[in-house]
Each structure stands twice: as C-alpha cells, then as structure tokens.
Simulated scan of single mutants.
Amino acid sequence: MTEENETGEKMHYVCQTYVAKKAARGGRGGLQIGKQLQYSTASEAQIRAEREFLAENCIGADAYVVTEDLTSGEVGSPTFLVGLGTVPDDEGV
C-alpha cells in the first residue's frame, strides 16, 4: 500500500523485523530480515513495528518510508520513523 502525490512520487511505508541469524561453525551470528510489511500510512507502519517487536523471536523492528519516482522507477533512501531493539546501523542486511 502506498500514497501517491501530485509530484509523480509514491510513498511506501514499511515495517521490517529482524531475527537472529545463526552463526556458522566458529563464526559470529548476525541479523536477518524476518518480515517486510507495507502500509498506507507512517502511523500504521510504526504501530506494526512496535507490535512485531513484542513477538517472541523478533530481536528488532523498524519502520521507514521510501519515496518512489513514478517516472523513472527509482526509489530513494529510507527515512526511518522508529527503530526498536537490535537493528542494523546502516540497514544493509
């Protein structure tokens, strides 16, 4: 679900969760994306992130918005609305 404005852009509001990634033998564990859910508003995405963070196997959740240029199809960098628990510093999971 998205929000389209008069400038030919579409806003995507996303809730993303993280789970622990098991370490390979002798290695170090990390983060893995659990769920990626899209919403109509920033508020909906943020509320869902807060709710998902309470789930048993969720170690982190965030909500963010990205803007898509409808003419070129390019998507901009995310603007984070909330980050809960353990989330990547650079979001490069």
Rank of each mutant, 00 (worst) to 15 (best):
Y39V: 11
E50W: 01
T41C: 05
G8V: 02
G85W: 01
E52S: 04
E44P: 01
V93Q: 13
R51A: 12
T17M: 09
V19S: 12
D62C: 03
E68T: 07
T41P: 05
N57G: 10
Y39G: 10
Q16R: 15
E6I: 06
V87M: 01
L54S: 15
V14R: 14
N57W: 10
G27P: 06
E4M: 09
A20Y: 03
T67E: 05
G26D: 09
A55Y: 08
A61E: 06
S40A: 15
I33Q: 11
C58K: 09
Q46I: 01
V82L: 06
T79Y: 11
D89R: 13
D69Q: 07
E6N: 12
L81R: 08
S77Q: 11
E9D: 04
V19L: 07
D89V: 09
S72Q: 04
E44A: 06
G83Q: 08
A49K: 07
S40F: 11
V75G: 11
D69G: 05
E56P: 03
K35A: 14
N5M: 02
V14N: 12
T17K: 11
I47M: 15
E4D: 15
E6D: 09
C58D: 13
T7V: 13
T17S: 05
Y64Q: 09
V66C: 04
G85P: 01
S77L: 06
A63N: 11
T67V: 07
E44C: 09
M1S: 12
V66Q: 10
N57V: 10
R48P: 13
Y39Q: 07
